[in-house]
C-alpha cells in the first residue's frame, strides 16, 4: 500500500499556514552534497512530507503525522518545527 493510501485512514484538519519551515535553503544544497539524495529529512519522514524539486526542499505539510523525526534527523538543524495551531493537524482514533 502506498503511503498516500495509508494517510487516508487519518482524520485531519488542515491548518492554513504550514507548521514546518526550512530556515536556510543553502544548507539543503550543502546537505545534498554531503548526504546525497534522499536527504535525511526525506528518508526519515513516514508521510512523504518532503520532496527535493529543482534543488529545493518542498514541504507538503498537510501530510504530516507530527512524529518529530525530521527535526531530530536534520544534520543542519534547519527545520523550524512547530505544532499545528487551534487543534488542527491529525486526530487519531486509536493512537
Amino acid at each position: 500500500m502506498r503511503i498516500e493510501e495509508k494517510l487516508y485512514t487519518l482524520r485531519y484538519k488542515k491548518d492554513d499556514k504550514s507548521h514546518l519551515k526550512i530556515l536556510d535553503g543553502d544548507k539543503c544544497l550543502e546537505c545534498e552534497k554531503e548526504y546525497g539524495d534522499p536527504q535525511p529529512c526525506i528518508s526519515i519522514c513516514p508521510a512523504n512530507v518532503y520532496t527535493w524539486q529543482n534543488n529545493k526542499i518542498v514541504i507538503g505539510y498537510e501530510n504530516c503525522v507530527e512524529c518529530g523525526a525530521c527535526r531530530i534527523a536534520c544534520p543542519f538543524e534547519n527545520i523550524l518545527w512547530n505544532y499545528p495551531k487551534y487543534g488542527k493537524g491529525i486526530a487519531l482514533r486509536y493512537g
Binding site: K6, T9, L10, A47, V65, A69, I90, L92, Y94
Partner: peptide
Amino acid sequence: SLREYSAKV
C-alpha cells in the same frame, strides 16, 4: 482493512 497509520519518536 487498515484503520489507522501513525508515527511518533
